[in-house]
Design a protein around this nucleic acid. Sequence first.
RNA 1: UCCACAGUAGCUCAAUCGGCAGAGCAAUCGGCUGUUAACCGAUGGGUUGUAGGUUCGAGUCCUACCUGUGGAGCCA
Length: 445
Amino acid sequence: MATPMLIQDIAACDGQDVIIKGWLYNKTHKGKLVFMQVRDGTGIAQCVAFQKDLPPEQFEAARALTQESSIIITGRVRRDERAPGYPGGYEVGVTALEVIHEAEEYPISPKEHGVEFLMDNRHLWLRSSHQWAIIRIRATIIKAIRDWLDDHGYLLVDTPILTPAAGENTTTLFQIDYFGEPAFLAQTGQLYNEANMAAHGKVYCFGPTFRAEKSKTRRHLMEFWMVEPEMAFFSLDDLIAMEQEFIAYIVQTVLTTRRQELTILERDTTRLENIIPPFPRITYTEAVARLQKLAAETTDPELKESLQIEWGDDFGAPHETAIAGMFDKPVFVTHYPVEAKAFYMQPNEEDPGVVNCTDLLAPEGYGEITGGSERISDPALMAERVKTMGISEEAYRWYIDLSRYGSVPHAGFGLGVERMVAWICGLPHIRETIPYPRMLSRKYP
RNA sequence: UCCACAGUAGCUCAAUCGGCAGAGCAAUCGGCUGUUAACCGAUGGGUUGUAGGUUCGAGUCCUACCUGUGGAGCCA
């Protein structure tokens, strides 16, 4: 009696008669036998149909089967070193084949395709093994994020996506019509997080965020997912200590639970195995000095040009890559100039020209994966900041209230999930890190 | 928004100095009992991104536009 089986469990079913429900991933036939690579969502298994083992009409159906046709296969699992697939090493000797739907000519072949074509067919491309591996790792990263926070006393508190006020910078917000009033898609949950923090101590929000920046780079999406922890009575040192444990846990969790997927992606995991605390940290000022030294020493005129920087400038992509390249772990860059950062960041006591903030730059040129800081907790300073930034006091009254009623030193950060996925998977472009990327010139499918 | 490059068969690409529109893969048909992006033989497949211009003749040269790719900028 054949029993249903998921392909991920194929090794445990050796010798058993099983039923697989799935899709034909690829096929090759050789006279009186047909090799079918069948995927069921949990893996890919080679199913071998010999003419003598099937009713004639079913063998003919196997020979004629089109790529991505949906099928139900009955057969016996056997160990075979030659069998490809994920996990592979076992194959199914087919005794019956039922075709559920014969697919039309499938546009994506196992051969190479261009970026535009694949993105136009993103809804189908997701079935390909590379994309399958990425999306599974993404799910594991998200689970690791939530597990670590939940296990360390952080409470998930949701923040709104539809927000009423734009503050000072409407150009980077998507505006929508809210019953005749303008509303905006959230760029961050942080301000609401600070209110939630005062209620629960350590909180985090996790959801999609939206930025209408006309960024056309390999690291930017218009819609991306961000986790933002916010902690009461936290200093910059507390923040850095927490972040490195958190990041290391995520990386190590993927390494231990998604080996197969990292192999599919041909990721060099030795770089990831090294991601354990403590991470190096340098100040912004030190980073600028190192960049200037590097620019002075290099003989490459293009690199020299791209590394030009003066104290006070924010880092561009070449700067981030160069700084990260000086370390083999993620590096915390702290104490940026006040002007380069957000209005709510706490100025440094000894050097008021910089803020107590830290960006975490990933190795291998993957850029900023977290950005965080101590927040201003002094009511007078907050009021002054709000005024000088030209922020609507009416729209942000609720936020200003937070500094009036039991204000405490606090800190938090945001982590971009897609950049984390790109780094861990070793992907050259962020577009493959989310099922349906929203980019400057693409919102289909 | 700026710079560079590209657009030819379903896909990936060729086409010499401006002179017959071509291949691999995919598809279809046939062959093969161990394939790993199989292989072998055969068949079908084209408004060369759009609009205009130069020329006896334009995929190729010129102008504008559209679309995409790479990079920069932008980026609490």
